[in-house]
């Protein structure tokens, strides 16, 4: 099996940006110099990113790895920025195919298909991410249990591969929900992580959210509990890699 941290191109053939994203995350995890994969991503041509645009599995794995790596690098380079959340998410944190992207650009401009972070999942995002429209993905609510921005309430960072993306996302979602969801059968009430409120539209509204909880075995089949949302702990907690 190849080492993802070194799989960023050997200089003789065009480096694979998808492998570079995976390699970048691995280097960040190992606290190694990320210069090579960063350069590969910055210099990547749109042609070399075809699979990221055309194939949902490649797109999800690529952007989740890029986001999680970029967030950790930003936390290391400018930790003070995290005190101002709207600035932290807004500053350029990584360059992909010549486009300087912020964490908001990646999450709301690409992974959520250009939806506003403020619209509960129902409003379009005003600004563009600086990448062609073809990069946008249809929102998959499971990404909210895979993106780590460095806050204590964020899920653990996993490495995502195109071939196993659905299984890994399911596992990340199940793990996070198992830790954070509390179902009270007597009161017919369920307590949920805050991200379920912030992006409730991504889940298909409140009824879609209940179906999601049933699918991940957080509430019994047929149950339709009232929803309560926990507060989010924004305490800085970087380097929360899954072991």
């Amino acid at each position: 099996m190849s080492d993802p941290a070194s799989d960023v191109g050997d200089g003789t053939s065009a480096p694979d940006p998808v492998a570079a994203a995976r390699g970048l995350l691995e280097r960040v995890r190992r606290q190694e110099l990320p210069t090579d994969p960063l350069r590969t991503l910055a210099d990547a041509s749109h042609g070399s990113l075809e699979s990221v645009r055309e194939d949902r599995h490649h797109g999800l794995a690529f952007w989740l790895n890029v986001y999680n790596a970029a967030a950790q690098l930003l936390l290391e380079a400018r930790p003070e920025l995290f005190d101002s959340r709207w600035r932290f998410f807004r500053v350029p944190s990584i360059t992909v195919a010549g486009a300087e992207l912020s964490l908001d650009d990646i999450e709301h401009g690409v992974l959520r298909g250009r939806r506003s972070k403020y619209g509960l999942g129902y409003l379009p995002r005003l600004s563009t991410a600086g990448l062609p429209k073809a990069y946008r993905l249809e929102p998959d609510p499971r990404i909210h249990f895979a993106l780590n921005c460095g806050a204590a309430s964020c899920p653990a960072v996993l490495a995502y591969e195109p071939d196993t993306i659905d299984e890994t996302l399911d596992r990340a979602t199940k793990n996070y929900l198992d830790r954070t969801v509390t179902y009270d059968a007597e009161r017919n009430r369920v307590q949920l992580p805050r991200v379920c409120l912030w992006f409730v539209g991504d889940f298909g509204g409140r009824s879609g959210l209940r179906s999601f909880l049933r699918a991940f075995e957080q509430i019994p089949p047929g149950a339709s509990p009232s929803l309560r949302f926990r507060s989010y702990d924004w305490t800085r907690a970087s380097r929360k890699f899954a072991t």
Binding site: D83, S84, R85, W86, R87, S231, W234
Partner: peptide, 14 residues
Amino acid sequence: TAGPPVVVDGADVG
């Protein structure tokens, strides 16, 4: 409640 740079430290709303 929005925190820096408007205020020195963000207010703990909860």
